[in-house]
Design a protein around this nucleic acid. Structure first.
Length: 260
DNA sequence: AGAAAGCCTCGGCCGC
DNA sequence: TGCGGCCGAGGCTTTC
């Protein structure tokens, strides 16, 4: 699920545990994969009090009175709080959550739990996460930061690949990238350095507009472009047959008529 | 059967 | 010719 908009709602959910003290932490071998050992998470978090939450791109941050903690959600990670089956079965009723998909979490002194629910095991816990490799946050991207993002030496990579590069801008995933290029009318294969002045202006405008619109709608999967995301689809805007290719390592759908 | 809303590593290529 | 940086491909993992 998660691109930046989903992680931002996880962050807002995590605000609930600000002020609570961690009595226990646990992580399986996958969620602890970026740590020095499987036990490192449990040792590092015990006794910490959460003082605030943050986020850079798709990385959720928990500020504490000690070391800062980070959570990455991979492709299928969901944050749960107060929804642990051990406390109440709410999340495990109508929704599709299963206790054997829980990969780790935190238990607080007030009895609540923060849980990483992640069927596909690509979510990761981090201790004192390094933010230096992450670009500016996509939700608050300024025009100056955008200009830096599209700056290249030579032609540079395809604009879609650049948008997905987390060190250029943090938070844009596959769906958001396709959506903003669709809205801006730009071919995703266009070398970043060859975008015209007009295309740059259009892309910055749709970048911020896409973030705002989809956040209001409630998720990265609620874009206008979504209904054309299958083989044989037609462009909702002008009816042309959508093209499909792998660009920047991800499946990309675009309209040959209005994205050029 | 094959693709999937992320990220990491590896290897090739290009330019200094 | 050698090296570093950039960029794309591939792998990880499980599910529907």
């Amino acid at each position: 699920m998660p691109e930046i908009l989903e992680v931002e709602s996880y962050r807002q959910l995590a605000d609930r545990v600000v002020g609570a003290t961690i009595v226990r932490g646990w992580a399986d071998a996958y969620s602890a994969k970026k740590l020095t050992s499987v036990g490192a998470w449990a040792r590092a978090v015990k006794g910490l009090t959460v003082t605030g939450t943050g986020r850079r791109g798709k990385l959720l941050l928990l500020d504490t009175d000690g070391v800062r903690l980070g959570v990455r959600f991979g492709m299928t990670g969901v944050l749960l709080i107060d929804g642990d089956a051990g406390i109440d079965g709410l999340f495990y009723g109508p929704h599709d959550f299963r206790s054997d998909w829980i990969r780790g979490g935190l238990a607080f002194d007030d009895g609540r739990k923060l849980i990483l629910h992640d069927p596909r095991r690509m979510g990761r816990f981090e201790i004192a996460p390094d933010l230096s490799e992450l670009g500016p946050d996509a939700l608050t991207l300024t025009r100056m930061q955008f200009d830096e993002l599209v700056h290249t030496r030579g032609d540079g990579p395809a604009i879609k690949a650049r948008l997905l590069d987390q060190s250029s801008v943090a938070g844009v995933g596959n769906l958001l990238a396709d959506e903003m290029l669709y809205r801006a009318g730009i071919d995703p294969r266009t070398p970043t350095g060859l975008l015209s002045i007009e295309q740059r202006a259009a892309l910055y405008k749709t970048f911020t507009q896409t973030m705002r619109t989809l956040q209001r709608r409630g998720g990265s999967h609620l874009g206008d472009h979504m209904e054309a995301r299958f083989p044989g689809a037609f462009c909702p805007r002008d009816g042309a047959s959508m093209l499909v290719a792998t660009i920047g390592g991800r499946t990309t759908y675009w309209c040959p008529k209005h994205q050029s």
